[in-house]
Nucleic acid binder design. Sequence first.
DNA 1: GGAACTTTCAATTAC
DNA 2: TGAAAGTTCC
Length: 677
Amino acid sequence: MLNTLNAPQREAVKYLDGPLLVLAGAGSGKTRVITQKIVHLIENCGYAPKEIAAITFTNKAAREMQERVGDLMRDNVALKGKPNKGLTIATFHSLGLQLLRQEATLLGYKPQFSILDSSDSFKILADILATTDKQLFKKTQWQISSWKNAFINPDQAKAMADEELTVAAAKVYKIYQQTLKAYQAVDFDDLIKLPVELFETHREALEKWQRKLKYLLIDEYQDTNACQYKLVKMLTGVTGQFTAVGDDDQAIYGWRGADVENLHQLTEDFSRLKVIKLEQNYRSTVRILRAANQVISNNPKLFDKKLWSDLGTGELLQVTAAKDEDHEAESVVMKILAHKFENRTFYKDYAILYRGNHQARILEQQLRNNKIPYTISGGQSFFDKAEIKDLISYLRLIANEDDDPAFIRAATTPKKGIGSTTLERLGEYASDHKISLFSAAFEGGFQRDIGEKQLNDLLTFCQYINKLQDRAARDPAGEVLNDMMAAIQYEAFLYDSEEPRTAEGKWKNVIDFIGWLSKKSEGSTEFGNESDGKNLLELTQMVSLMSMLEGREDHEPDAVKLSTLHAAKGLEFGHVFLIGVEEGILPHQVSIDGEQIEEERRLMYVGITRAQKSLNISWCKKRRRGGENTACEPSRFIAELPTADVRHFGNPFNQDPEASKALGKERMAQIKAMLGK
DNA sequence: GGAACTTTCAATTAC
DNA sequence: TGAAAGTTCC
């Protein structure tokens, strides 16, 4: 098995004498190192699968790793038939969840606590702040999140706050935490922060987990924030048995608290730290790699490393100046069609990458017009859909009836005679007596205050939830959920409030979701499936952490990939189109103003290094902005590309706009004619 | 006057 | 996609 690795990769897999940092450049096979190391630990080093945890940042990465470990173990004669049951391959957030679920009582939570998404916490903040200033909520939410990521509690925040806005935010932070506790709920950041808090205050819990997890592997280490680093440090304890894999040049999450310095910090905190560099790239052509290296060389270096490739020189990079964004989208789509036609490739060999989600819209249109299949990643697609959130609110309420945000949503969707007045009274009583909405409904003090019909409807709802709770503990998830959807007449509700076509689509989502949930709850006999046979309550918590439901499909469809640069990290494509490479977009204006060009440059680097065979970069000469057309400048990163490896199209310097326009038209006509044949 | 609807316009990045 | 502005109807 180890023979399929190159020398440094093999060294990284075999090294077990202490803490190890693997500096893995883009496309250098870091996932291979992690997966092979897991198998090596089990096969040759006497580790039991349940003593090993691999931590990633996205569900997608976790899933992929799981599959690859499963494949490796299946192929391995010595391990044949030995299931990797108990092996933890999870995101930071789901590991935190797992931990918290088991130790919740130590922190004063019940194990069925709820997980709030950012819109729930947004609403809570709106209540606390009692203004309508949206900007203020957003700022406060961001501030609280950064405090949590830096492991700063409300009192410390208060002590540190020096300006008016932060002082106010610190106060809100405290109330916010109390509210969450009352709801028996945690937010995303708490999933990391609370375990650290737990370990600081409960030594025995820490020791228990240190004994349980004997070897840790951490992926994308450059993306860890202070809190996550603390968690890793605590779990690995004094033995320092871990492998961290990262690349400082691909650190693109500084804005959510990630700190590249954590890479450097490792060398300080673990004096015995061994560092191995993976510098051979197995993905891109020499030209693409040279461009990537050249661009990133404009950033100060944390660790010196130079990627190289022996995959051949490859084609010139293309830089295209488009007239405007419509023209850009059209030209990208035409190029894909022509290229696919000429090279007999698949749609899935192409990716279009951009800085902001909104940039996808115009491309979607263009792709649809040309009947090209596409998939979009990035954004929070499936679980943010209203119909799914409706369903989840019921699930959350079944698991935890004190979850007030879920209560409000479930009680009012679909409408069941519980109106705003009833909820207001209920809310008043609940906050006066410091109990949840659900419990308040059963209190005599509240009941006396409200009309007979209103009370009746409210109690019918609450009792129905109680009934569901009973059934959830006994019956198969799919059955319970299907009965529930029938009982609340959700399908009819959709058709009442939507166009038939949208309603149909939404109902299908609901059916898909229930089907997926019940499959998960039954569990499968598949190798190393993290979600084997979970009950409905456990599933509910797990679901809150997922961002996408894709990947349940075994085969990726043959479709062009649209993705933000952030969401594209870790992926690779034969042919990449990088669009909107303009000053103000990449680098983004906010980053220019905040003088955070380096992270934007790394984003550019990530984009370039996604490409295997060809790379097309485009920018628009003008762009609609604020109703008016504004002139745009090509990104400074374009100037940083090695001139010998780049060919320019579209007369970027506007010397003769008419001529370039004619040329563009001619080329477009050629492509269209060719496709017509 | 205001609720309910349609249209327009702008847009960081995400677990 | 989602919020703000504009439009219609009671």
